[in-house]
Computed example of a mutant assay.
Amino acid sequence: MSDMERLHRIKYMIQQRKCVSREDFLSELEISPATFKRDLEYLRSRMQASIVYDRFMGGYKFENSDAEERIEMPGLWFSEKEATALVLMQHLLSSLDQGGLIGPHIEPLTAIIDGILGQSETSAKELRKRIKVIGMGSRKNSIENFSEIGAALLKRNRLEITYYSKGKDENTDREISPQRLIYYRENWYLDAYCHMRNDLRSFAVDGIRKATLSNKKAEEVSDKQCQEHFAESYGIFSGKATQRAKLRFTPEHARWVSGEHWHGQQVGSFDKEGFFNLEFDYNQDPELVMDILKHGSGVEVIGPASLKKRIKDELKNAMENYSKD
């Protein structure tokens, strides 16, 4: 950490927490008492920071409540447009984090952004009030498990997990080698090498009931292997593609679908009548079936025959639910 980064950090620690003990500064900044004393003197004399020691609270704070807004720190400058983009980025991250996994870690960033925009005509708080992100399908995750997963990814160690499969309604104990975390459709998934199946698998993080970091080194899988294994299939389901979907959307639905990303290797084209034809390879079809059904009569499955039958059966079963009235 550079000297200037450390000075910024001291300022923002006080700004965020209001009062910070000497021990917290030394521990978190990993500096000596002498270095902290010099930094404090620099902030007071060169930056006109009214930082005082409060004996009652047992820490350092700003003498004036609005002092943090008046301190001009060199080395970090943003135009109003850039600062506004920072607010949007932070707010989107916070709003997408419905499970509360990264919220605590974003709070310091919020304090920093508010400090940057403190004297701006555009208030960060005002911007946040006028931006709303609605999460429809997010599921609650365990912060403890998420932390263990993060540690395993960074240390490149294996995880011992108890995993609940919603499809099979069963728990299994597994040893896995985490490869990467995926944020997909407002939920977290972990791509990993499963030592029980001896193959790559994708695990929903909210299905990991228990996670314990192992001392064993993780089995390394190249980015190319992961891409080949996961990219060919549809959605979150992994495996080498074995079938090719061919869908035909009505001109009305084509206005939306033609601009959507369904698959990394999709091929789309309009015909003379204005219908939109979409093709891509896939392996398993649970997600694909759901995405097709949400378009109702606005889409027709041209192929393969097995997918067409799945859709017809689902529509037939749905109609039977309403024929009972």
Results as ranks from 00 to 15, higher is better:
residue 110 T to C: 09
residue 111 A to Q: 03
residue 112 I to F: 04
residue 113 I to W: 02
residue 114 D to W: 00
residue 114 D to K: 02
residue 114 D to Y: 01
residue 115 G to P: 10
residue 120 S to R: 12
residue 120 S to G: 11
residue 121 E to P: 09
residue 121 E to H: 15
residue 122 T to Q: 07
residue 122 T to H: 08
residue 123 S to P: 09
residue 124 A to G: 11
residue 125 K to Y: 14
residue 126 E to M: 11
residue 127 L to K: 09
residue 127 L to H: 10
residue 128 R to C: 14
residue 128 R to P: 10
residue 129 K to C: 10
residue 129 K to Y: 06
residue 130 R to T: 15
residue 130 R to Y: 11
residue 131 I to F: 02
residue 131 I to T: 04
residue 132 K to A: 14
residue 132 K to H: 11
residue 134 I to W: 02
residue 135 G to E: 13
residue 136 M to S: 12
residue 136 M to R: 15
residue 137 G to T: 09
residue 137 G to K: 09
residue 138 S to G: 15
residue 139 R to K: 13
residue 140 K to S: 05
residue 141 N to T: 14
residue 141 N to P: 08
residue 142 S to T: 14
residue 146 F to A: 10
residue 146 F to I: 05
residue 146 F to G: 06
residue 147 S to A: 13
residue 148 E to W: 01
residue 149 I to M: 04
residue 149 I to Y: 09
residue 150 G to K: 07
residue 152 A to H: 02
residue 153 L to P: 05
residue 154 L to R: 06
residue 155 K to G: 07
residue 157 N to P: 03
residue 157 N to E: 06
residue 157 N to W: 01
residue 158 R to M: 11
residue 158 R to H: 09
residue 158 R to C: 12
residue 159 L to T: 07
residue 160 E to Q: 14
residue 160 E to K: 10
residue 160 E to H: 09
residue 160 E to M: 03
residue 161 I to P: 14
residue 161 I to A: 11
residue 163 Y to V: 07
residue 165 S to A: 14
residue 169 D to W: 07
residue 169 D to E: 15
residue 170 E to C: 04
residue 172 T to S: 15
residue 173 D to K: 15
residue 173 D to L: 06
residue 173 D to S: 13
residue 174 R to K: 15
residue 175 E to H: 12
residue 175 E to V: 14
residue 177 S to Y: 00
residue 177 S to P: 03
residue 178 P to C: 02
residue 179 Q to F: 02
residue 179 Q to L: 04
residue 181 L to T: 01
residue 183 Y to K: 11
residue 183 Y to R: 05
